[in-house]
């Protein structure tokens, strides 16, 4: 290597501080803003964005302790709007980036911001596997039942018969059900919200973040520009809040039933279970980023090759 590089032993990366509960900085919503927002007026993303910012402030965790991993789609532009650590990856591949980041530094609150196309089309295998592993990440699906950024094609959650640029005669396939899929894949926190209800979204996001293990927040969201079917009114006619006093979120079969309700869209925490997360089972409670090589172990291992 060139001499210009300072040689540093591996300890350096470990010296970063991790302070939780940094409320003394008295942050406001504005402090979490980065660049000017470019979403279409009326986009459901606004509601989700505000709810996330409010949740960050309300949780009182220093913003430096979050790691947002974004997919590709209109949702992914949030990387430019939210002034919190972020990684914008490839289309469909946000989940494995988040899983890898969390394995490496389990102190980071790791969130996937994704869409129905990104997460349930191109990235479906990762979604199922991360849920199965109970990886300790939160997945927020911006579920608007259409591809927005690529200007209006059918998405994995589009209803059968939905007409779009890629399916002018109406989509033939039946839609993916993200809630049922998460449930049957082993997710330990499955919730749904509506982009038109910021207060509930904030609470759900906070609950998802404080849950240990794989948590899903599926957000029903209109796309003003490309989805003329699933509008705010359409959703308002169908969404309802689960009654927390009567809903038993430990009842898996009831949650599946709710997920498959053909008439109504339940919002709230459909299901929650306590299971050790992948990271807990793998005994990953700290950051491994600063860990140096284990020379003694290497010496012992070399002996076995003699």
């Amino acid at each position: 290597m060139s001499d210009d590089h300072t040689v540093q032993v591996s300890g350096d990366a470990s010296t970063h501080t991790y302070d939780e509960g940094c409320a003394e900085r008295k942050l406001t919503l504005k402090d979490l803003d980065a660049e000017k927002i470019t979403w279409c007026p009326g986009c459901g993303n606004f509601g989700i964005f505000i709810a996330i910012k409010k949740a960050i402030l309300n949780l009182g965790i220093d913003p430096s302790q979050f790691y947002f991993v974004y997919g590709i789609g209109c949702h992914g532009h949030m990387v430019n709007f939210l002034d919190v650590n972020g990684f914008e990856g490839l289309h469909g591949r946000a989940v494995p980036v988040a899983v890898g980041a969390k394995l490496a530094n389990s102190r980071l609150k790791t969130i996937v911001i994704t869409g129905d196309g990104d997460c349930l089309g191109e990235g479906l295998n990762h979604f199922v596997t991360a849920a199965r592993g109970n990886q300790d990440i939160t997945v927020v699906i911006h579920d608007n039942q259409v591809y927005g950024l690529t200007t209006g094609q059918t998405s994995p959650t589009s209803d059968k018969g939905f007409k779009s640029k890629s399916t002018p005669q109406g989509v033939i396939e039946r839609p993916v059900n993200p809630l049922a899929l998460a449930l049957t894949s082993g997710a330990t926190f499955v919730s749904a919200g509506f982009a038109g209800d910021i207060r509930q979204l904030q609470t759900l996001f906070e609950q998802a973040l404080t849950h240990t293990g794989f948590s899903l927040l599926n957000v029903y969201q209109p796309c003003h520009t490309y989805n003329k079917v699933n509008t705010y009114d359409w959703f308002r006619d169908r969404v309802y809040k689960l009654d927390e006093s009567t809903h038993d979120s430990s009842d898996f079969h009831n949650a599946v039933k709710l997920a498959y309700d053909p008439e109504k869209l339940a919002t709230g925490v459909l299901f929650q279970a306590e299971h050790p997360s992948y990271e807990q089972d793998a005994k990953l409670t700290e950051s491994i980023v600063g860990k140096g090589p284990n020379k003694e172990a290497l010496g012992r291992l070399l002996e076995n090759f003699k």
Binding site: A13, Y67, V69, F87, G89, L90, R93, V95, P96, V97, A98, V99, G100, A101, K102, L103, A104, N105, L108, N125, H126, T129, S287, I288, V289, G290
Partner: peptide, 18 residues
């Protein structure tokens, strides 16, 4: 689960300093 996930996990881990 597959090599696509493999490389993205490695990028995720690398991106936080591992």
């Amino acid at each position: 689960e597959d090599e696509i996930s493999v490389v993205n996990m490695v990028v995720g881990a690398g991106s936080v300093g591992a």
